[in-house]
Amino acid sequence: MILKTFLIFIVALIGYSDAFTGTSLIQRPLVMGMLTGLVLGDLKDGIIMGGAMELAMVGSVSIGAYIPPDMVSGTILGTALAIQAHADSAAALTLGIPIATIVLALETAIGQPLKLIFVHRIDKNAQDGDTKAIARNMIIGGYAGKLPGLVIVPTAFYFGQHAVTTLLSNMPKFISTGMTIASGLLPALGFAMLAQMIMNKKVAVFFFIGFFMVAYGNLSTTGVALFAALIIIVMYIFVERKDDKKGQDTATETAAGQATEEQGDGFDEF
């Protein structure tokens, strides 16, 4: 049990290293769910639960002053507690989403002020011209901001599983039915959030191709994903990319000595 708790902490540490590893998407529920499953000896359920969490949180990306719920703690605790209680992914989801929201609130209230201490130190380091200290304080500050999650994940796993197991096994039927229905709705919400961010005239057609494949072709989502992967490959091979072409033009012009001063700074012209 102690070992499992320690390994769960390591998984959380890996997840919270997302920014440190260059926004590698290592914190995504898909990865966290899989690692949690691996640690608890149930890789398959871990992947399935991680997948369910990923669908619900697929639109949770911190872009444009939006701070998503803390999916690291939500996925790890949701998946781990559900696996320990031998429950399904609906349970993982209904446990995980509130946890993610609560931990985000704690990170904002406790983690961010801690991080700010280091931000001010970095300001001072910059004034002193001490680049090594800047790098060091950036890393420490990054993890300091995640302190609430790093503490809560192993603690809640260690002390919470008995309570959660009892709760889930004694739950009235109508609540567990409600949980299952809610877990069917959440992916739609997650996808709607994603669509709000990335949907435009160009990609909408692909959305509907996938939608109708499921609606009329009775294809599973895995099937749609496989076709989508193939479409990407086809487009990559056969469709000439504008960026490449422009790069060549610029190169030719530079060679001809006609390049203006403004070219090469990475921006466009009208």
Binding site: G64, A65, Y66, I198, N200
Partner: peptide, 11 residues
């Protein structure tokens, strides 16, 4: 140019 501009507003 940052997330609020490039993603939220542009969209």
């Amino acid at each position: 140019l940052h997330g609020q501009v490039a993603v939220s507003w542009t969209g």
